[in-house]
Design a protein around this nucleic acid. Structure first.
Lengths: 112, 112
DNA sequence: GCAAACAAGTTTGTTATACAAACCAGTCTG
DNA sequence: CAGACTGGTTTGTATAACAAACTTGTTTGC
């Protein structure tokens, strides 16, 4: 009924993973903000390859989660949206990466 | 307009990640099948902590993706559902883990 | 021997999500 | 000054995850 090894019990950090960051598009956005500190909408648009609508809505979610700070300015007469990771965002991103690494590591090998 | 570092260009393996496996519940299911080779529905139910409905539907998706093989038997008079990873499933799982590890590694450090 | 409880799942319904397409306000250009 | 372009936001749709309700059959209590 049960498998041979009744003791099998995996660590399950993956079930508690931060869903906000787990979404690949948002991971990517956060990864960019993580390394560049601050960027504008169009930079992220180009780099991530997302559509504008998508980028906008993911940024909205990240803002709502408190992970990014959105500031709207004018650069001359042109509106410009400036994005940066908040401290919380940086912390959450580090935590996500650590927890995923842990989930991905240490799996017994199983059999072929 | 753009951030200071115009060269910034991350590897973006994360955008091509296998969405079937990326879902934590399914990752967990596959991880169990990966190590135990074969298990029944109730074993997975207990181990994963998913509800029956959820487990059933995730298994359905994994089957449709060709990642798990579902066999229904009777154990005496009691119906029993036997699950195992297919070869494709094992390969995909390995690939997913490799690709996520890569995405999680090598991020420049950014600034505080 | 039949009613109620249980086993092993599946189906259904709700809520949320990702995504692209359409839209919009304002600016620049020929 | 008409049309194209910038820099986005809003809207619509299809999928998804999840829990709750249901189903088919079996076992147990009375």
């Amino acid at each position: 009924m049960s498998p041979k090894n009744k003791e099998t019990q995996l660590n399950q950090p993956i079930t508690e993973v931060d869903r906000i960051i787990h979404e690949p598009a948002r991971y990517l956005i956060m990864a960019y903000l993580y390394v560049v500190e601050s960027a504008d909408f169009l930079f992220l648009l180009r780099q991530t390859g997302l559509t504008k609508g998508n980028l906008s809505s993911h940024l909205g979610k990240l803002e709502k989660a408190g992970y990014v700070d959105i500031k709207k300015k004018f650069s001359g007469k042109i509106p410009q949206t400036l994005l940066r990771l908040t401290r919380d965002g940086r912390v959450a991103f580090d935590a996500y990466r650590a927890s995923m690494k842990k989930a991905l590591a240490d799996l017994p090998n199983g059999r072929k």
